[in-house]
């Protein structure tokens, strides 16, 4: 289990155990859990708490790491809160290989920079995309739809317009 000084807060949410650690010590916390048998990173993601009034949040972005011990089976969720523009956190791709793509996805969708990631590039969105779609301040349906009316006016040459 995670050693006492690293833990900021812990609890149970709908039957799932979770632990919050400081954003600087995420690698140490996950390495300790891995040593204890939590060898599978089930998923890694981010939650954007912009304008979330359900409780007082320590920071805007919450990184969530779900780990599983395949022998028991037992699960634990590790959280870390980060802020900043862009927000930074250490990569864990060398501890858990599946984190490689998951971190690229989290960068793509939320703009979280994972320090020391070998290839932090967009994975789902096109390479030249601007913005990070899963941020709460990114509007739904904000881009011009191809072959729509706006698209046509944009495509028409000046003498015809």
């Amino acid at each position: 289990m995670i050693s006492e000084p690293l833990i900021v807060e812990q609890g149970v949410s709908a039957g799932d155990h979770w632990v919050t650690v400081g954003s600087g010590s995420i690698r140490d916390a996950l390495a300790e859990l891995k040593k204890d048998g939590f060898t599978l990173l089930v998923f890694l993601t981010c939650v954007d708490h912009l304008a979330d009034s359900s409780r007082q949040w320590p920071a805007r972005y919450e990184l969530v790491y779900e780990l599983r011990n395949l022998e028991k089976p037992e699960q634990i969720r590790v959280r870390a809160f980060i802020d900043g523009d862009p927000p930074h956190i250490d990569s864990v791709h060398d501890l858990f290989p599946p984190a490689n793509w998951e971190e690229r996805e989290t960068y793509d969708m939320f703009g979280i920079i994972f320090n020391d990631h070998p290839d932090l590039s967009r994975i789902l969105m096109p390479d030249d995309w601007v913005g990070h779609p899963l941020r709460r301040d990114y509007p739904v349906g904000g881009e011009v739809v191809e072959f729509s009316e706006e698209h046509e006016t944009w495509q028409t040459p000046p003498e015809k317009a």
Binding site: S13, G15, D16, V42, V64, R77
Partner: peptide, 14 residues
């Protein structure tokens, strides 16, 4: 308010 993770076995895995 809260969060939860549930996994089921599909034809492809978790």
């Amino acid at each position: 308010p809260g969060d939860v993770y549930v996994a089921v076995e599909s034809g492809r895995g978790e």
